[in-house]
């Protein structure tokens, strides 16, 4: 794996790596990818794909029963910072409502 690829993946995860760390990660991630390449040598033509590590299980579903969660003060107690009843965090440079 190239240093440039490591830098890209690190940026996606918002990780700041030193030059030494980048070199180590390139080596380690490269080994993992090499192993995947090795697995690719197998003939899986007849094998159904595994979509999920919990294949064979099914997710339980719960009833639609609303229940109170945390008291507001309790919820905000873990906040790094607050403004009145709102959590306050450094903004990430995206416009409002960009998430969904």
């Amino acid at each position: 794996m190239s240093i440039a690829e490591v830098e890209h993946v690190a940026w996606l995860a918002r990780l700041a790596l030193t030059e030494e760390e980048k070199r180590v990660m390139a080596e380690q991630l490269g080994r993992i990818l090499d192993y995947m390449e090795k697995l690719r040598e197998l003939d899986t033509e007849e094998v159904p794909p595994t979509f999920h590590t919990l294949e064979g299980m099914r997710v339980p579903l719960r009833g639609d029963d609303p229940r109170p969660g945390l008291e507001r003060e309790e919820a905000l107690a873990a906040a790094p910072d607050r403004a009145d009843d709102l959590f306050r965090v450094p903004r990430t440079g995206e416009a409002e409502g960009e998430g969904a």
Binding site: D64, P66, G69, L70, D84, D85
Partner: peptide, 26 residues
């Protein structure tokens, strides 16, 4: 729905900020 997708918090519109939250949705 009356409650959220993955937890039991109520979904009422217009509730005071951060009054319908729990460890799952936080």
């Amino acid at each position: 729905t009356a409650s959220k997708m993955f937890c039991n918090c109520p979904t009422r519109f217009g509730a005071p900020p951060n009054s319908q939250v729990c460890p799952v949705c936080l």
